[in-house]
Simulated scan of single mutants.
Amino acid sequence: MTLSADEAARFAALLEEHQESLVTTWTEHVASTLRGRLSHAELQRQNSELRRGFRQALAGSAQDLAGEPAAELRAQLAELSATRARQGFTATETAVSIFSFKDAVLTTIDAASGGDAIALRDYVAFSSFVDEAALFTFDSYVRVREELIADQAEQLLELSTPVVKLWEGVVAVPLVGTLDSARAQVVMERLLQTLVDTGSPYAIIDITGVPAVDTQVAQHVLKTVVAARLMGADCIISGIRPQIAQTIVALGIEFGDIATKASLADALRYVLAKAGQTKQKRREL
């Protein structure tokens, strides 16, 4: 249901004539749902701006929220949704803040018209317009929350895949948690970049913190080892616990000529010994 031009004009006049009482009543309704998580002054400021946005849209003969006259109102609703999402409010709390505008308008209509039939029909039409605005707010909120969650997931992914320098010429990647395709790609990229930056000839991939190793996890680790070898670095896999060793044997996973050690300390001792042998051979030559 859309507003007619006459209905939009009448409601624009109503929102202008009773602006103070509307904002006050609206703020009281919304404040009761937010449980004091937003100051009364800030809430009243937001509602006052939204009332102005609604009035301007209706004064421009907006018949629904998708039209050009409601462009500024849509921008205000999107900004409100983004702000509430970042502040930790729920989507329901955000949408209810818009739905409550109908209660404030109905209170004003009852007081101003005494239940006039035309005014009530206008209210029904206006109610649909507000519902559309609330749904738009809900949709905007969800999009912002999804973006925030995606950004946080990316940040956690980067934090969970550090590449550390253990010794001169030795870097390590301590893996903790499940190793999926996306994370394996990040591990590979960060390891290769660190090998380039440090010129390290040895890399240790420690899977002590990986709860279980299946065929997919093993493939990700092997791809990382192959990529590092193409960069001229020798890779050692550490953290092969008894349970993981049994799983690897049961699955028939082959690590080939890749060195494996039970712990990160064993891997580091192996690398240092190997590095010492390499230096000795160089002296002999």
Results as ranks from 00 to 15, higher is better:
Met1Tyr: 11
Met1Trp: 06
Asp6Arg: 06
Phe11Asp: 00
Ala13Asn: 12
Leu15Val: 00
Leu15Glu: 00
Thr33Glu: 09
Arg37Asn: 03
Arg37Val: 06
Asn47Val: 00
Leu50Lys: 04
Gly53Met: 07
Gly53His: 09
Gln63Met: 09
Asp64Ser: 09
Ala70Arg: 09
Glu79Gln: 15
Glu79Tyr: 07
Gly88Thr: 09
Thr90Trp: 13
Ala95Val: 14
Phe101Leu: 15
Thr107Trp: 02
Ile109Cys: 07
Ala112Pro: 01
Ser113Gly: 12
Leu120Thr: 03
Tyr123Trp: 05
Phe126Lys: 01
Asp131Gly: 06
Thr137Val: 15
Arg143Ile: 13
Leu157Trp: 08
Leu166Asp: 05
Val171Pro: 03
Val171Phe: 07
Val173Trp: 09
Ser181Glu: 12
Ala184Trp: 02
Gln185Val: 03
Val186Leu: 15
Val187Thr: 04
Met188Gln: 15
Met188Ala: 13
Glu189His: 07
Leu192Ser: 00
Val196Pro: 07
Thr208Glu: 06
Thr208Met: 02
Val213Asp: 02
Val217Pro: 08
Gln219Tyr: 07
Gln219Met: 05
Val226Asp: 11
Ala227Val: 12
Ala233Tyr: 04
Ile237Phe: 09
Gly239Glu: 09
Ala245Val: 02
Ile248Lys: 09
Val249Ser: 12
Ala250Ser: 15
Leu264Cys: 11
Ala267Ser: 05
Tyr270Val: 06
Tyr270Glu: 09
Val271Thr: 07
Ala273Arg: 11
Gln277Pro: 05
Lys279Arg: 13
